[in-house]
Design a protein around this nucleic acid. Sequence first.
DNA 1: CTTGAAGCTATAGTGGCTAGAGGGATTATA
DNA 2: TATAATCCCTCTAGCCACTATAGCTTCAAG
Lengths: 137, 137
Amino acid sequence: MLSIGELSRETGVKVPTIRYYEQMGLITAPERSAGNQRRYSRAELERLAFIRHGRDLGLSIEDIRELLELSAIPDQTCAQANKIAADHLAVIREKILRLKKLEKELARIATGCKGHTIGECYVIESLSNHGLCADGH
Amino acid sequence: MLSIGELSRETGVKVPTIRYYEQMGLITAPERSAGNQRRYSRAELERLAFIRHGRDLGLSIEDIRELLELSAIPDQTCAQANKIAADHLAVIREKILRLKKLEKELARIATGCKGHTIGECYVIESLSNHGLCADGH
DNA sequence: CTTGAAGCTATAGTGGCTAGAGGGATTATA
DNA sequence: TATAATCCCTCTAGCCACTATAGCTTCAAG
Ligand SMILES: [Zn+2]
Ligand SMILES: [Zn+2]
Ligand SMILES: [Zn+2]
Ligand SMILES: [Zn+2]
């Protein structure tokens, strides 16, 4: 049996976050010690590691909740699990595209200032005037 | 003089967001009509457009607040404005790098499932086992 | 003068945590 | 066994940048 601190160290999930996940119903309330402290089993550690991995991959809590529910039914079709992964990949790709556009614009803005005062500053001018931007963002 | 709705249409900033910016002190409380409704001048429209452009470029409210304060002092050096832009560019580039790693991992996960049931699902397996991941994320 | 859109304030909710206050439990050492 | 250090408990509030709702008032067009 692990204390919440040990579980935290083993999974890399911070202690208040573990309690938060319990409150959100992502993990069930564990056993308690005689003095009312949480005590976790190995199965609970694995579940938390699954959650952590999902979060590290950028999945939302709700996606993870659904994947956890699915993973409890080994005989069911995995179409929905595949869809969650595919949808999330699409979201990440869109984010990358958006950020690349921003990067282009910001690289121009951040390197374009040849002046020395605010009155001549290309950064300030660029923010005042979206017409200087190449892409629509 | 513009009503808050007209200002919203002209800048693309939603009405509740304009009120929120006022509350945050990013824009000053405008004149009011006889019936207590907000009335904006062209100068206020330009200030809001500046804010909107900053947000579209991903700057934080605090960065924008600082840039607005700087822009009021045309004779001062613009070093700080340039720094805000450069720092933000660096943040965006880091985000892109992180998302590209995620994309790689997710592309593998989302396209790797050859099974049909949860029990054989590569998505579920990948989440359970970080060892399958190439990069540390 | 009526109607419907638009505006007002105040409060609470979003996601995913994180921080702090004010205590109780456990464990290691003396 | 005493004590001190560390850990853990609950509860509440805060973070960011909005967004939504409720219950009301004002405005502009016909
Ligand atoms: Zn400059
Ligand atoms: Zn622009
Ligand atoms: Zn599958
Ligand atoms: Zn991994």
